[in-house]
Design a binder for these strands. Structure first.
Lengths: 248, 248
DNA sequence: CGAGCGGTTGAGACTGTTCAAGGACGGTGG
DNA sequence: CCACCGTCCTTGAACAGTCTCAACCGCTCG
C-alpha cells in the first residue's frame, strides 16, 4: 500500500508548466542549465507523506502538479494545516537541515526537487533565485497572516466561505476564466482536511457546507463539485471586503 | 494628544543596539555607510499608529526599541494581531507600495527607517541585505505558522500559556539570562492586546490569567509583572513539547 | 473629587464540539 | 451480479468552552 515515491529523470525546464511562477521564474537559460543538473522529479500518491516533521531534508523543491499540505500536530493528535502548497509553491528552507512540518500529498503530486547543498550554493551565486525566493516567501507570509485572521476571528460559516473563495479564486486564475460570473471547481480537500485547515471539526465543516448550500450561496453536486453562482455573495459571507479587493 | 512622531537625525550604525540582528546584520562597513545616507529615525508614543493599512508607504525600516504590532481589522471591528514586532524586526515590504496591515506602536517605539526607493535599489546591489531579509522573512513565516496552530487548535488556557512562554523566552534571550530557573518579566501588552493576538476576548484572557495564577503556574504582582517559577510547567500548559525543544 | 482606563468577576446565551448513528459511494470477493 | 466492507460524509442531541452583557474595583490624571 505504501508505494515508494516514483523517481523520474530530468525533463526540460523549457516547457515546464510552472516555469514562469516557481522559484526559477527569473532564471536565464544558462542558469536553468545549472539547475537542470541538480534537479530530479518525485511523484507521490494522494495520502503519502513527503517529509516528516523533524526529519533531515536533503532537498528543497517546487510543487509541479497536485496539492500538498503543511501540517503541525500536537502530541494528543490535534492537527493544524499551516500551508496549502499549490503548483509552483516552494517546499523546504535553505539553510536549515530539519523539516519544521509534515508535508503530505493531498492529491497525487509531482515535485521538482533540487539537492539542497548545490541549491544553497547556487542561491549565493545566482541573485535571480534568491530574489524570487524572497518574493515568494513574502507572499506566503502575507497568506499566513491573512489566515491568522480567519483562524482567530471568523465564525465557522465565515471560515468555510473564506476557504471556498480562496480555492475558487486561485482556480479561476489557473483556468484564466476571468469571467466574474459563476465559478465551478472540484474541492481538492476532504471535509477533514478542510477542518484541519480551518481549525474546526469535520462535523462542523459538513454542517456549514450544508447550510451554505441550503442558503443558495453554493451549489453542490456530489460532495466535491462546487458551483458558485455569485462570488460577491460568497465574499460577503466570508466577511471580506465586498469588492474582493486584492492587494497586488 | 496625537503628537506627531519625532524625527531624529541619523546616528552611528556602529553602536546601534540592533546592529547584529536587523536587516543590516551582514553589511560591511562600506555598505553601512550607504545605508546611513538613506536612513532616519522616527519615534512614536505608545498607542500611536505608525502606518494605516492601505496607505502608501514610502519607507521600510527596523524596530530599534519598543514593540509594535501588525493588526488586521474587519469592517465590523473584529481585529486580529498578525505580528508582534520586537527590536530588530523589519517593517514594510520592498516592491509593494501600500501597507497590508495597520502598524501600531504597542509601547513607546523608535524605528530606523530607510527611504523605500533607494533601499530597493540597494537590495539589488547588495546581496548581504537581500540574504538577511530572506532569512528574517523565513523566520517570520515560521513564527506565523506556529501561531496558526495556537489560533486554530489550542484552548484559551493553552493560548495564554503559549503567549507567556514566547514572551518569556525572547525576554530571556535578550537579557541573556540563560538560567532555566525562574523567569521574570513585564508584560508589554494590555489584556485587550493579548486578546487580539490570541483570538480571544479580553474577559477570557483575564479569567485565564487568574486561573494560571491560582494554579501556581505564574505569579502576578500587579497586572503586568509576571514571574514564571517553572518554565517546563508553563510549556506543559501550553501544550508544547515538554522539553521546549527549539528547532534552530 | 470625579472621570477614564485597564482589569476582574459573574450569569446567561450561544457557537462549536463530542459522541453516536446512519447514509452514499466505490471497490472487492464470492 | 450482489453482498460486504471501508471511506467519506451527513445529521442529531447533549454538552462544554467561550462570548456577551453588565457590574464593579483600583489606579492615575486633571
Amino acid at each position: 500500500m505504501l508505494n515508494e515515491p516514483t523517481l523520474q529523470h530530468s525533463q526540460d525546464c523549457g516547457n515546464c508548466p510552472i516555469r514562469h511562477r516557481a522559484v526559477c521564474a527569473r532564471c536565464e537559460t544558462d542558469e536553468l542549465e545549472v539547475l537542470e543538473e541538480i534537479k530530479y522529479y518525485r511523484s507521490f500518491e494522494a495520502g503519502q507523506t513527503v517529509v516528516w516533521s523533524g526529519d533531515k531534508m536533503d532537498f528543497v523543491g517546487s510543487v509541479v502538479s497536485g496539492i500538498a499540505s503543511l501540517t503541525q500536530t500536537m502530541e494528543d493528535g490535534r492537527t493544524q494545516m499551516v500551508g496549502l502548497l499549490l503548483p509552483s509553491d516552494f517546499v523546504g528552507r535553505p539553510g536549515r537541515d530539519g523539516a519544521a512540518y509534515d508535508v503530505v500529498a493531498t492529491t497525487d503530486l509531482v515535485m521538482c526537487c533540487f539537492r539542497k547543498k548545490p541549491f544553497e550554493r547556487m542561491m549565493l551565486e545566482t541573485p535571480h533565485i534568491a530574489q524570487r525566493l524572497l518574493e515568494m516567501t513574502l507572499d506566503e507570509l502575507d497568506a499566513a497572516r491573512e489566515w491568522m485572521l480567519v483562524l482567530g476571528r471568523k465564525t465557522a460559516r465565515e471560515k468555510i466561505a473564506s476557504l471556498l473563495s480562496i480555492i475558487a479564486r486561485r482556480d479561476a486564475s489557473l483556468k484564466l476564466s476571468g469571467a466574474q460570473g459563476t465559478l465551478v471547481f472540484d474541492l481538492p480537500l476532504t471535509r477533514e482536511a478542510m477542518a484541519d485547515y480551518l481549525g474546526l471539526t469535520l462535523e462542523t465543516v459538513s454542517r456549514q457546507m450544508s447550510a451554505l448550500k441550503r442558503d443558495g450561496v453554493i451549489l453542490l453536486e456530489g460532495k466535491r463539485h462546487v458551483t458558485i453562482p455569485d462570488l460577491s455573495r460568497l465574499l460577503e459571507e466570508a466577511g471580506d471586503d465586498s469588492d474582493g479587493g486584492m492587494m497586488v
